[in-house]
Simulated scan of single mutants.
Amino acid sequence: MNKLHVDYEQYHHLIDRVVDAVESSGYQPDLILGVSRGGLFLADGLSRSLRKPMAVIAASSYRESSGTSQGDLQISSTIASVVPVAGQILLVDDLADSGHTLRALCTHLKQFCPQIEQLKTAVVWVKPSSVFKPDYAAQYLESDAWIVQPFETRDFT
């Protein structure tokens, strides 16, 4: 599989594109909900830029073959947040790969957080085979490259 290496300068530019897309849409989230691990950098950038609180939910399906092969999705039973998970929520992950994680998280959150009035999603990248189309994205990829993000250098040593 081809690899797309992204450095910090490129990554921050992509975060800015997502921030601009959310701001220009007029959507006013009450809370940025980042998906650990990959979504935390984007969630932090959105939280700081939009001046909204950030919460974290853990979800993982990449545990097989040293984290490069997708398995069963596991979602944490709790959300780390200092404010209620309610109102307008922006769910943030790094990418929509197959799209199954974001789809499952949306279903999970609507079921377990009935105080959510509106749930929108944002990612840095969307792969062409994703079955889920986020509300906001910085880049729609034309091929199914493996993305090596700047903070993942320890994963590939």
Score class of each variant (00 low, 15 high):
1 M>E: 05
2 N>M: 09
5 H>P: 00
7 D>V: 12
8 Y>Q: 03
10 Q>T: 15
11 Y>G: 00
12 H>Q: 10
12 H>W: 04
13 H>N: 10
15 I>G: 01
15 I>M: 06
16 D>G: 14
17 R>W: 03
17 R>A: 14
17 R>V: 07
17 R>C: 13
18 V>N: 13
19 V>T: 02
20 D>M: 13
20 D>G: 10
22 V>Q: 08
23 E>P: 00
25 S>G: 10
26 G>H: 08
29 P>M: 04
30 D>P: 03
33 L>E: 00
33 L>V: 01
33 L>K: 01
39 G>E: 07
40 L>R: 05
40 L>Y: 07
41 F>H: 02
43 A>N: 11
46 L>T: 11
49 S>C: 03
49 S>H: 04
49 S>W: 01
52 K>C: 02
53 P>C: 02
57 I>G: 13
60 S>K: 15
63 R>T: 13
64 E>H: 01
66 S>T: 13
68 T>S: 05
69 S>K: 14
69 S>T: 14
71 G>N: 03
72 D>N: 11
74 Q>Y: 10
75 I>S: 03
77 S>N: 09
79 I>K: 06
83 V>H: 07
84 P>V: 08
87 G>A: 13
90 L>K: 11
90 L>I: 12
92 V>L: 13
94 D>T: 05
95 L>Q: 15
95 L>M: 15
96 A>I: 07
99 G>M: 06
99 G>C: 05
100 H>R: 15
100 H>W: 09
104 A>W: 06
104 A>V: 04
105 L>T: 05
105 L>R: 03
106 C>K: 12
108 H>R: 11
109 L>W: 05
110 K>E: 07
111 Q>C: 09
111 Q>T: 15
112 F>I: 02
113 C>M: 10
113 C>E: 15
114 P>K: 10
117 E>M: 12
119 L>Q: 08
119 L>Y: 06
120 K>W: 03
120 K>L: 12
124 V>P: 05
124 V>S: 06
125 W>Y: 11
128 P>H: 06
128 P>W: 05
130 S>P: 00
131 V>H: 04
135 D>H: 15
136 Y>G: 09
137 A>I: 04
137 A>D: 05
139 Q>F: 09
140 Y>G: 04
140 Y>T: 14
142 E>F: 06
142 E>I: 12
143 S>G: 03
143 S>D: 14
145 A>Y: 12
146 W>T: 10
148 V>H: 08
150 P>Q: 02
151 F>W: 15
152 E>W: 10
154 R>L: 12
157 T>C: 10
